[in-house]
Design a protein around this nucleic acid. Structure first.
Lengths: 129, 129
DNA sequence: CCGTACTGCATGCACGGTCATTGAAACCCC
DNA sequence: GGGGTTTCAATGACCGTGCATGCAGTACGG
């Protein structure tokens, strides 16, 4: 019975994660959608905002792929959308001309600052106090 | 500073959930895909298998919607796929002819039994011991 | 009874995601 | 330095999801 309990505990933990993930993700989406952003969009914006400001808040795409929970292709499209909306700019990296730099625009920085408290509030709402 | 820490803790917790969710989901998908199933498919199969066997392992769709982390429309399509693959059968509910019963077929029951240990193993791998 | 509101599931549509592939650039090693 | 391999990012094809809607069937109120 001990083994059955262990399996059940894992199963329970997994259900908890699934539930927390779904509820929080949905809540963030609802909070951010009025501003034209989804949860993934914010995740990227947040990383760029957190990226070394001494480097002009820019970041190589390759650098983001590892940190974000998205495939490389999804990230590429997401950045394209952000660029189209004027929130970030892309520019080729001069050292390695395969790479591209992604940088927040002023508009992107403002929007991030605007929605950050909303995301925090959503987290607080669904993840408890 | 206390409030800043609180915000950071929430943020960390969220990142942990995101990470665990992504890794586990991916692992389950990889384990189940060779058998023609995704993580959501298994979730539904598992619920049907757990559903009161005295009722013939059947369940109303309405009953599943609340338990599964899927919209009603996604669930409807998912069940349609499972039915096409011969894993479940749909039949109208005689008491309330709007509702439909979903029941595991023998094939569905077998497949569930076959992949259950794989899912458990994936959970164990990514969720620790 | 008949009409209105409501509920349960299916469907049209658009969006965002992954996988596989491509193209360009760097690397390497002879 | 030219040919094979690897790396970075973008693109095409396809799939699953959510939202809004449609369509049966039910419940209620006159």
């Amino acid at each position: 019975m001990a083994s059955k309990t262990a399996g059940g505990q894992l199963e329970d933990r997994w259900r908890d994660i699934l539930s927390a993930h779904a509820r929080t993700m949905c809540e963030i989406d609802r909070a951010l959608h009025p501003h034209g952003l989804g949860a993934s969009d914010f995740e990227v914006l947040d990383m760029l905002a957190a990226a070394a400001p001494e480097e002009g808040e820019q970041c190589r795409v390759q650098n983001l792929v590892g940190r974000v929970h998205l495939s490389q292709s999804a990230l590429s499209r997401l950045i394209a959308r952000l660029e189209k909306d004027g929130l970030v700019t892309r520019s080729v990296c001069m050292e390695d001309r395969r790479g591209v730099w992604v940088a927040l625009t002023a508009k992107g920085r403002d929007l991030h600052a605007e929605v950050l408290p909303l995301q925090r509030a959503a987290l607080a709402r669904t993840l408890g106090a």
